[in-house]
Nucleic acid binder design. Structure first.
Lengths: 345, 345
DNA sequence: TTGTACGCGTTATCAT
DNA sequence: ATGATAACGCGTACAA
């Protein structure tokens, strides 16, 4: 049956003919409360399914025990995996998590930020949209003392902030190095959207691996795309347009994009002779189902990135780290080499 | 610079030498407020980045404008796509969404439910965990007048509840029918976890399509698995163990499972002659990268399921539908036929 | 050991 | 047109 009168402390107090404060203290196991009274109160609370009203508590305690998370997209496994790390650690520390998607749109990101600000989250973790260059909507938080940790997407234009990032430099370096070690000299690089926070570090990893191993760099071997399939194909076409400079290997900034690239290359027979060895960022479980899989994946350890972000955030909330003592945490990638049975080149 | 005193109505009122209620009314565009006063207040509010405290408003208004969503897993694209539908519609109607994962564990589901109850969400949308048979943690909501809509996972043991479900019966029927129309007589059925809310309807769709088209049913052609790869392979082995009764087609309850099945079948040469045509639930974008793809996919329209769930929920919140007038909404599946170029069998 | 009184930030009712 | 006051549900300092 639906009971209309809400079960509040006052409601219980009336039932028990006690004061509200006694009920409150009994439920919170205050030592000064008589054991018998406490028991009676707790039984009554259970019987009536008393549930403390979080809004009232937030108002009183001036904190919500809620962590806000803004990220571009839940369809990207990187982010859903990172949430796993965030949730684990948050729950362990008595925090709940509100997730909000920006769909990589600045306007949605601003809305999400304002919503979370009104909700007075105790801290914010954010992977900025690809269009975010102005940070006023996010700076609001720090202005009123709510710590913000930027993760995954590097807010290059925002110097004074806490960051937790994948070490994509190192990941891309290792991938390129592996290809070099396997004898490749013409290694193409397929980068992401030309925003500095996407491709800069990866590209540097690529370049440095080439340099350190004395493999000549050619700008003809570099192309950029976004998450759109058509653009990927155009980019790939450009990479393979010079017969005398045809790549024998490829590093791509994200696996779904790489799959489009591979599919296209196969349609043009490049793979029929295993001509191109590929590596991308991601390590999708899906790879095991492919007939021409990448030879390796750059695992970005999203769970660990999430965990580092929330761990830092909670230290900031607890003032174990001063909010203006800006931290930068890098989480290493791990190169996962898949079955190299083909032994191609 | 970090400003320590929180910007509240009182703070603004003091600055402006006005009363709190005037400030409140000015910010909410009360018609009785003088235009000039209103302007002064709003400017001051903007200058100090006043942000209303949602906890205080919730407490006052006895509602949170938050919808809670409990679902098993964000790694499953069905659910992340359904969230898209939920978010869209929720935002349009002035609601925010809190998502909580149960990881298909009852204990986590109970924790999530309690958290959302404390947060006094205005409504709950839930896809129950595969272990949920007792509903007390969810019934709590209706007991205090908060409507609950069950979606995707059918709570068979809970008769009096609002449901929004995929019409998997129809989806599975159509898939089976397509295979029959393509000449198959030995169509295997690979079902999901043997919980009634997973496979019952699908299996009935399969059976009914066979019956309606006078294709004989054989229990040797039915096997069950869960989301574990080993179990899937065992199940598939059992289906193909009788040489005289070997399936030429397969309907599977979920695509990732189907991919494992296909991979195994290919390893045993069953696909070398295109012996088995497959269909699964899901319609993953990934299919386009497979060399031996399913011939069709049963698209469950998760966005539409999500939209129907929240649309119903908001009607319940607004009391346009009585909370005890239990609704059941079925969302049809759509059979997506992929390139049938192979023309096998 | 228990009760009284106040305040958290906001809105709404009733005076002025 | 504006202000004073009460109320939402809870926790706590202080009084009894």
């Amino acid at each position: 049956m639906t009971n209309n009168t809400p079960v509040t402390l006052k409601f219980l107090a009336d039932k028990l003919k006690m004061s509200v404060s006694t009920v409150s203290k009994a439920l919170n196991n205050y030592p000064t409360i008589n054991a018998y009274t406490r028991q009676r109160v707790q039984e009554m609370a259970r019987d009536f399914h008393f549930t403390p009203n979080k809004s009232a508590i937030n108002l009183k305690e001036k904190r919500s025990r809620i962590i806000g998370v803004i990220l571009p997209n839940l369809l990207d496994h990187f982010f859903t995996r990172s949430i796993y790390g965030i949730e684990q650690f948050a729950t362990q520390n008595g925090y709940n998590v509100i997730i909000s998607q920006s769909h990589d749109e600045l306007e949605k990101e601003i809305q999400s930020a304002n919503m979370l600000l009104r909700s007075r989250v105790d801290g914010l973790i954010v992977a900025i949209s690809k269009h975010t260059q102005d940070f006023t909507h996010l700076n609001q938080f720090e202005n009123i003392g709510i710590p913000v940790v930027y993760y995954t997407r590097n807010p290059s234009f925002n110097l004074n902030c806490h960051k937790v990032l994948c070490n994509t430099f190192q990941g891309c370096y290792q991938a390129t190095k592996l290809l070099i070690d396997r004898g490749h000299q013409k290694i193409a690089y397929l980068g992401g959207p030309k925003m500095i926070n996407f491709t800069h570090d990866r590209f540097n990893g690529y370049i440095n691996a080439l340099k350190d191993n004395e493999v000549p760099f050619s700008s003809e071997l570099v192309a950029y795309t976004d998450f759109d399939k058509e653009n990927t194909i155009t980019a790939i076409k450009n990479l393979f347009v010079y017969p005398e400079n045809k790549p024998t290997a490829l590093v791509a900034f994200k696996e779904p994009i790489l799959f489009d690239a591979i599919k296209y290359l196969r349609s043009t027979k490049h793979f029929k002779t295993n001509e191109v060895e590929c590596i991308g960022f991601g390590n999708t479980s899906f790879i095991s189902y492919l007939d021409s899989p990448p030879i390796a994946s750059i695992e970005e350890n999203p769970e660990s990135v999430g965990e580092n972000a929330i761990s830092l955030l909670i230290q900031l909330i607890n003032k174990e780290i001063d909010i203006h003592n800006y931290q930068k945490v890098m989480v290493d990638c791990k190169l996962i080499v898949h079955g190299l049975n083909a032994g191609s080149v």
